[in-house]
């Protein structure tokens, strides 16, 4: 008997197109593991993960991304939000850059003052509701 797929979605506005590969990413995220992908042929790494390598379209494998601290590369405070996120506005979207140079785009959820480029961001995880989970930044 096949295992029933657990219903999981990423982030605050839900794109319900969840593939088996993306599902594995989400199930790891639920365990507070951020996964990147790696091409078995050329070794290229992708964060966020791609199922297919951009260079040779080989099927990538998911591997845990080890870094936990990043610097704020750029940010926006969204005051007027898309309809799907209107109830959350204003919110801060930040691109964080890890020491390896890889970047991740997520909300900063605990800012008490204006963001400053270069400030340290800590990777964290959150359960938004019973189906939605996310990675996020804390300062």
């Amino acid at each position: 008997m096949s295992k029933e797929k657990k219903e999981l979605y990423l982030g605050y506005a839900t794109d319900k197109a969840v593939t088996p590969f993306f599902q594995r990413f989400l199930e790891a995220l639920e365990q507070e593991k951020l996964m990147m992908s790696r091409c078995p042929k050329c070794g290229a790494e992708y964060l966020p993960p791609r199922q297919h390598c951009q260079k040779d379209l080989e099927e990538c494998e998911l591997v845990e991304f080890p870094e936990r601290e990043a610097k704020l590369y750029s940010y926006v405070i969204v005051d007027f939000a898309p309809e799907s996120l209107a109830s959350r506005a204003p919110y801060v979207v930040a691109i964080g850059e890890f020491p390896s140079g890889k970047r991740l785009t997520a909300h900063i959820t605990n800012l008490m003052s204006m963001p400053e480029i270069g400030m340290t961001l800590k990777l964290a995880f959150d359960r938004i509701d019973d189906k939605k989970i996310t990675y996020k930044w804390l300062v």
Binding site: L10, Y12, D15, V76, V78, P82, S84, V93, H107, I117
Partner: peptide
């Protein structure tokens, strides 16, 4: 990107605000 950007409410102005901040 519907998988990685849209869930975080990055509006069209927000993309350009990310450029503006930087």
């Amino acid at each position: 990107d519907m998988r990685w950007e849209y869930p975080y409410g990055i509006s069209f102005p927000a993309f350009y605000a990310l450029m503006a901040s930087r």
